[in-house]
Nucleic acid binder design. Structure first.
Lengths: 175, 175
DNA sequence: GGAAAGGTTCATTATGTATTGAACAAAGTA
DNA sequence: TACTTTGTTCAATACATAATGAACCTTTCC
């Protein structure tokens, strides 16, 4: 427990020099929470990433838990997700058993992962379903078939548009 | 009630010539359900739009309810939403009090509405929050401030990238 | 070995959102 | 006017997903 005190600089003279002010922390966490929400990710994931993004130095899980008031389970799972998405990196610190986390600042890679994991499968699924529809159409009466072909054509052009957006978006983030 | 029979051609010789086959209906509804899910809209909205998209002729609410097995409430609210997004149009039919619905096929307009309503506000909100963060940063110690400025710079470039995607996406759908 | 810290798992609980259906309003119809 | 059809509203319910926290490994340290 003496260790607990020396391990991280949080104690002593009540100094918290390297910790952003409370309103700052709130604002930055909020920012990423709304981003997470947009991306369809759990709030806790946004909170954790937000906290790390503005933290001067890597944080350990127990520090994250303390600052965000979340449960061990949420923190563990949230970090697992962020790790698997390569949104955070694990770093070691000499003389400390804990894992410390650092945000991946090159958000491009992060976005690429998100697009690939979340959007890519959707597009593939859409493709598959369009194929299904086209197969079914062939068995229809000529009148119906004509109309359905036309409408499916519309969907096809959408599908293509969607597919072109991905590389474009990635290009934007490169600059 | 004699009216009920003559009103729509569903009765008589068990003919259902203008109604797509059941597997077709399933496939098309599924397609739009997954699209709705992607867009963060309720499943029922996707179902309704999907049904209309492949229907040869406009459908009334009670027909939609019958084919999709959903409640009056869901149908009413779903149609209200689709109307407000201009994803469907209301059409009248002589000698029938009911409102009939037709899909808006120019999906571009639909997407434009979605981007404007769902994505636009997010970007605006992000802008606001970034401003907030920048204001808070100025009160920080020089060391922290430098780092935060750098990181916020990253977010700014993201924000810009996001804003540029909208017109690009709309352009794609135009062609 | 025993104790404690660090971390994960997962059944339970909480929370937010969609759906339901009954009550209600409006507008014909007889 | 009484009755039916059409459609909306909204409180109650169902459902899906996230958060919780206790039980449980694993590793380190004495």
């Amino acid at each position: 427990m003496a260790q607990l005190v020396s391990r991280n600089g949080k104690r002593g003279r009540g100094s918290v020099a390297h910790v952003p002010s409370a309103p700052m922390r709130v604002a930055m966490v909020e920012f990423f929470v709304s981003l997470a929400d947009l991306a369809g990710l759990p709030k806790s994931v946004g909170e954790i990433y937000g906290l790390l993004f503005f933290s001067e130095k890597p944080l350990a899980m127990d520090e994250i838990i303390a600052q965000l008031h979340l449960s061990k389970g949420s923190a563990s799972q949230g970090l697992r997700f962020l790790r698997s998405s390569q949104a955070v990196r694990t770093v070691c610190q000499p003389g400390d058993r804990r894992d410390f986390y650092e945000p991946e600042l090159a958000l491009r890679r992060l976005a690429a992962g998100w697009l690939k994991e979340k959007i890519g499968p959707r597009l593939a699924e859409g493709e598959r379903k369009l194929g299904q529809l086209e197969a079914l159409i062939r068995k229809e009466s000529p009148g119906l078939r004509r109309m359905h072909q036309h409408r499916i054509g519309r969907l096809r052009s959408w599908q293509k548009a969607g597919q072109r957006i991905i590389p474009f978006a990635l290009g934007l983030l490169k600059g």
